[in-house]
Design a protein around this nucleic acid. Sequence first.
DNA 1: TGGCACCATTTGTTGGGACAACTTCGAGAG
DNA 2: CTCTCGAAGTTGTCCCAACAAATGGTGCCA
Lengths: 262, 262
Amino acid sequence: MAQSDPLYQRIASDLRDQIRTGALKAGDRLPTEVELREQYDVSRNTVRLALGVLQNEGMISSTQGKGTVVREQVMLTYHAAWAESRDRNASDQTDAFYAEMRDQGRKGEYRDFEMRIKPATPELAARLHVEEGDSLVSRAISRYVDGQPFSLQDSYYPMDISQECGLLTPHDVPGGVIRAMAAKGHTEIGYVDELTTRMPRPDEARKLGLSQGTPVLVYVRTTYSDKRPLRLTLTIFAGDRNRVVYELGELGAYTAGNGGVS
Amino acid sequence: MAQSDPLYQRIASDLRDQIRTGALKAGDRLPTEVELREQYDVSRNTVRLALGVLQNEGMISSTQGKGTVVREQVMLTYHAAWAESRDRNASDQTDAFYAEMRDQGRKGEYRDFEMRIKPATPELAARLHVEEGDSLVSRAISRYVDGQPFSLQDSYYPMDISQECGLLTPHDVPGGVIRAMAAKGHTEIGYVDELTTRMPRPDEARKLGLSQGTPVLVYVRTTYSDKRPLRLTLTIFAGDRNRVVYELGELGAYTAGNGGVS
DNA sequence: TGGCACCATTTGTTGGGACAACTTCGAGAG
DNA sequence: CTCTCGAAGTTGTCCCAACAAATGGTGCCA
């Protein structure tokens, strides 16, 4: 905002303020590039630089032929600690996801199920206590909510457990993976969740339908029995639509609000 | 990578592959814009578009006069579930942070402590069970690790509790906030953690020293007594340097690896 | 009335050029 | 030998121009 700032930064700040103060609301259309060009008396190139800044901040979204609009945020919540207890009663993780979405009045579905065998990367090997390059069974799905892509999930299982529990099928496991594993003595007793964020890779951006300037939430759950790691689930959440929640301690009937904080 | 992709996307893909395959390693210098311009026989404008894509993906970083280099990632870990149990024994949250960093062989410090009184936003009001616009006490700090900015933390307390427990000072509370609150009967029995991600606002990017294409991890912890919310802590983590970990269940001596997964 | 072709509008892509700002490093002055 | 200054190299900002591609609406035609 300083006088010495580059032109395009000043224009970006100006528009950002208009959005922040509510002069431009979510869904509103911005002036066209040509209008902005005249308004600020700069070249169209500079206008595009300014719009690019806001696009990379996730504030606006442009579509060829249509124009540029202020993005609106709809937040969905994933209860990580709570979902686990559901897991144990439900037939599969997918059912926990369904239940969660139903509770929030949404329609959940999943697509593109794939079973593949992949070599363990160093990171996967360290977490699942196998050797780097060992074969792992990968069971991947894409989750959708109300027809919109929501998250990409990829679960990895050690090969011996997969064979023992019948996970080597390109279909759902009858009764659910967790139950099948528990029946063979591989009972889940705890997990470690790791949460990071980064910008999506191009294929992730495509699959999740992410517009420019949307980061992803990377969520890795490693589940353990009393003896060894059983499973690693890697979930890529569309960052602009998702919130992961942990409720821990002896809480009563408290509920988190629906909006996000800052 | 398709033939029909725009030129700048193809150049970006090309360079991205070189980084992914290791032809260009972290810290390596990329060819200059002029060299790339000649190499691909395009205008410098197009080269800059391609570099902008990779910059927004957080893969490279340019400095005026110096050149463009492949970014390297150093991950620090924040144990969210574990930190809480430390909290109860330590004199303050800041001590838990120190201990965590010390365990990872790093030097933690904090700067720019500020005590302010702010009106409750709708989101804050809903979580702390107060009316919108009610006064809240905000105690904010910036955390540094090895001299690098690490996270911005802002804790909000209801006014009545703040007055009762002596939080209205622009200094550390002797013995720690948690102990002071527990002494007055406000004992923490549980919390709700919410994790989201987004691109940083300009001031956040400045304070955290974030380069282009780095998202932030937004971490909101609401702490409860058996009667009411006691505290809301909003932490903004630099997304490229931080990982939040939850260890839940009856786990033994399992430890998470040091690298990130995907 | 329904469908199709066309046109105006708008953003996307790409080229060209010029100068500013910053870093590095070597040559020359002291 | 050290310090300073300036040149060369590199990225940052800004302008202009043209055409491509997608969208939405208009109006003609069946």
